Lab assay of single mutants.
Amino acid sequence: MSRESDVEAQQSHGSSACSQPHGSVTQSQGSSSQSQGISSSSTSTMPNSSQSSHSSSGTLSSLETVSTQELYSIPEDQEPEDQEPEEPTPAPWARLWALQDGFANLECVNDNYWFGRDKSCEYCFDEPLLKRTDKYRTYSKKHFRIFREVGPKNSYIAYIEDHSGNGTFVNTELVGKGKRRPLNNNSEIALSLSRNKVFVFFDLTVDDQSVYPKALRDEYIMSKTLGSGACGEVKLAFERKTCKKVAIKIISKRKFAIGSAREADPALNVETEIEILKKLNHPCIIKIKNFFDAEDYYIVLELMEGGELFDKVVGNKRLKEATCKLYFYQMLLAVQYLHENGIIHRDLKPENVLLSSQEEDCLIKITDFGHSKILGETSLMRTLCGTPTYLAPEVLVSVGTAGYNRAVDCWSLGVILFICLSGYPPFSEHRTQVSLKDQITSGKYNFIPEVWAEVSEKALDLVKKLLVVDPKARFTTEEALRHPWLQDEDMKRKFQDLLSEENESTALPQVL
């Protein structure tokens, strides 16, 4: 008996699950189920560990084997000379395990699969056993689809999209007709009724959600790893209520002995410091949205989908001078704002400069500016000194954290500008005749005249004003913003236009 009217009423009120309206889709043409990776026989039982391990490696599972009696060998002398080797079968990115008779397991190899009674669906509900069930008529011709799209860092995100009359449910929550939600590992998919569980979705590319604290899981769906560094790992996640993407940084307390840091400095109150950081608001710094204190720290951040500045300059790639100017102007505005709010970044580098898009002209935002507030000064500097390429001379020669101030950030900005303009770092371990530390503390950077011949004198002058060993003589952010190279009204107008595109209400910060 159909429950279409009941569920449609529920759909009209929406769902609290991570779902959002989605535009129309072009329906895929039908194809045989076997060619799409559906096993030839149905099963109602969950797999054992041996079955799972075989399939996850990209080899055929026991459900897909063919009797050897149906095959015969071709003698080598009868092999056609022009026969080309077969292409290897792509490894599946996800697996659906059937929970009921009449449904088959599915190895997801393609990027898009339609499910329903219509014969054009890649996964067609046409098993005779299924057709005899009382629920068969409640399934729509095109009930739902599972697909994946390219996300940040060229990774993939799996989604389920509801197109049914009676509802598609993920972990008992209604997706909603015309809406989608991301699928995470071990999600249970039910059709027409929330208790009519048909599939379990296994994402073969992500970790299980159960490793994360419950308070975090209640608000966010964790997904793929976006990156990792000395101070922690960053994962893509989704807000459950809105389906908006965020980035979540995970900082290990054990790695940084944060408990010991608190004992050594009783004034170090991470929760208080995070609340201060959350109040920071500038178009060129990453917004801190939320914070969870569990076995590790979880910092929920605004997501930038254009990648890191590092990706644009790695491998001796240089940027156009006009692009360097647009990016560097924004970096200076961001660091100036942090300094005005009493925050020294201490870890400025291309990896911590994020881009809003893949376009050459785009907004940038500074991230990882609050680590000293979370990890403690000593722990952070011990970590950073392991990779000193961007560290100021006074940091390398000081004991502990004494003896330096916000000028350290201006040195790091000078190193970043040098790399963007030239395509190579000013200080490098590859210069074996002088140690990296000695290069930095003496201010002897690697200047290649033929490379810098293409760079304007004004740009080079600003680099020199920032890479000054004496912090008292080094340019401040205010002085850098007043430098002739940055007195470019076309560049500032472009920045204002980019801000307006992102948010019509965002105004250009005042600069002296």
Rank of each mutant, 00 (worst) to 15 (best):
V109R: 11
T133S: 08
W114I: 12
P88W: 14
K241G: 06
A91D: 06
K253G: 07
T133K: 06
R132G: 12
E84P: 07
H143M: 11
L130K: 00
V200R: 12
N269Y: 12
Y156D: 09
A267V: 10
I258F: 04
D265A: 15
Q69W: 05
L216R: 01
T65A: 08
Q69R: 01
S49E: 12
F144A: 04
K235D: 06
I248T: 14
D126A: 14
T68V: 00
R181M: 00
A247S: 03
S260W: 15
L268Q: 13
K253C: 10
L236Q: 04
S164M: 02
K131D: 06
I221G: 03
D218C: 04
S187V: 05
P88T: 06
Q100P: 10
T133A: 09
E188Y: 15
E84F: 11
E219I: 12
W97L: 06
N269E: 04
T68A: 01
P21L: 09
I160P: 01
V25D: 13
L204Q: 07
S223V: 02
K142D: 02
I251V: 04
E64R: 04
T43V: 04
Q78D: 13
P75I: 14
Q78H: 10
D77S: 07
E76D: 14
V246D: 04
V175G: 04
S5W: 14
S55N: 09
L226G: 02
F238G: 02
S57W: 07
Q20V: 13
L236K: 04
E239V: 08
N112E: 04
C121Q: 03
D6A: 11
I248W: 01
A190H: 15
S155L: 15
H13A: 08
A247Q: 04
K142C: 10
P266T: 02
I38Y: 08
V246Y: 04
K153G: 00
D218T: 08
G102I: 14
P152M: 00
F199K: 03
F202C: 04
S260K: 13
I146G: 04
A17T: 09
D77G: 06
L106Q: 09
M46S: 13
F115P: 00
S40H: 15
T45I: 09
V150G: 04
Q36N: 04
E64F: 02
P80T: 11
S55G: 13
S210P: 04
G229R: 01
I146M: 10
K244C: 09
D134R: 10
V175Y: 00
T59M: 05
G232N: 02
S228Y: 05
R262T: 04
L193K: 03
A237C: 05
C18D: 13
K214T: 04
S164F: 01
E76V: 10
E188A: 15
K241T: 10
G30K: 05
Q34A: 07
A158V: 09
L268P: 01
F144N: 02
V246E: 09
E161V: 15
E219L: 04
S53Y: 06
S194N: 15
H22Q: 09
E263C: 14
T133H: 07
P47V: 06
K255E: 04
Q83W: 11
W114S: 07
P213K: 06
S56M: 10
N105L: 10
D118F: 04
P92D: 04
Q29R: 08
E70L: 04
N112Q: 10
T172L: 14
V109L: 12
V66D: 12
D208A: 13
S164I: 02
T65F: 08
S41Q: 06
R148C: 14
H13M: 08
V150D: 13
F169Q: 01
T242P: 07
P80H: 09
S52R: 04
A247V: 02
L106W: 12
V175E: 00
R117T: 00
E271M: 07
N269L: 11
N112P: 04
G37S: 10
A9H: 07
S42Q: 12
V175L: 05
S120E: 13
T59S: 08
W97H: 05
I160E: 01
R217W: 14
S15N: 05
C108V: 04
I74C: 13
E233M: 15
Q78L: 06
C18S: 13
S41E: 11
I146T: 01
S28F: 14
K141P: 02
S16T: 06
F238H: 15
E233C: 15
Q29E: 08
E87V: 06
L130I: 04
L216F: 15
K197D: 00
I160W: 14
Q34P: 11
E127C: 14
V7S: 05
S24K: 05
Y156P: 06
L226T: 06
N186C: 03
Q34V: 11
E84M: 10
P75E: 09
P92M: 13
E219A: 09
C121L: 09
T225M: 15
S155I: 06
G116L: 01
G259Q: 15
S42T: 09
S40C: 11
C121D: 02
S16V: 11
W114Q: 09
T89M: 15
K235L: 07
N110L: 11
E86N: 11
S31D: 09
Y123H: 14
E263V: 14
S16Q: 09
E239T: 11
L226E: 14
T272E: 06
S42C: 09
W114M: 11
K214V: 02
F238D: 15
Q209K: 13
P128M: 06
S24R: 06
Q27G: 07
D111Y: 12
S28H: 13
S260D: 09
K235M: 11
Y220W: 05
I251D: 10
G102H: 14
S52V: 06
S67Y: 01
M46C: 15
P128Y: 05
S67I: 14
R3M: 07
L191S: 00
L204I: 15
S42A: 12
P213C: 01
N105T: 07
P88Q: 07
N154Q: 15
E122G: 11
C124F: 11
E263K: 14
G30S: 06
K119V: 15
H143K: 02
R217M: 13
F238C: 04
R181H: 10
F115R: 02
S2P: 13
H13G: 12
E271R: 13
Y113R: 01
S140V: 05
K241C: 14
I248H: 12
E8D: 10
Y220F: 01
D101F: 15
G232C: 05
P88L: 07
S120H: 11
K131Q: 04
A264P: 15
E81Y: 02
S42W: 10
S5M: 08
Q10R: 12
G14F: 11
S5P: 10
S49L: 14
E81A: 06
L129W: 11
W97M: 13
P88I: 05
T59A: 03
S62P: 04
R262L: 04
V66T: 11
S252M: 05
D207V: 10
D208S: 01
L183I: 01
E161Q: 14
R217T: 05
D162G: 07
N105Q: 08
A261G: 00
A267Y: 11
P21S: 13
S15W: 13
Y156L: 06
V246I: 07
S32W: 11
I221N: 00
G167S: 00
E86K: 07
N269P: 12
S55W: 07
G116I: 01
E81S: 08
K245E: 08
P182K: 06
T133V: 08
C121N: 06
G232W: 00
G259C: 11
E8I: 12
F199L: 03
A17M: 10
K135A: 14
G227K: 12
N184S: 05
S12T: 10
K235I: 00
E4I: 10
W114F: 13
T172S: 04
L193A: 00
R145Q: 13
G176E: 07
S31L: 08
S39K: 06
R148G: 10
P21W: 07
H54A: 14
T225R: 08
D162H: 05
V150Y: 05
G151Q: 15
L216M: 01
A98K: 10
I160H: 00
K135L: 15
K119F: 12
T45H: 11
I250V: 10
F169C: 04
G176F: 14
F169M: 08
F125K: 03
L191G: 06
D126T: 11
G167T: 04
P182T: 05
K245Y: 06
K214S: 01
S252G: 09
I248N: 01
D265S: 13
S41D: 07
C18N: 13
G37K: 15
V211D: 08
R148L: 06
D218H: 12
S53D: 09
F256H: 09
G58P: 11
E84R: 05
A94E: 02
S19C: 05
H163A: 11
L106E: 07
D162I: 01
C121P: 02
S155E: 04
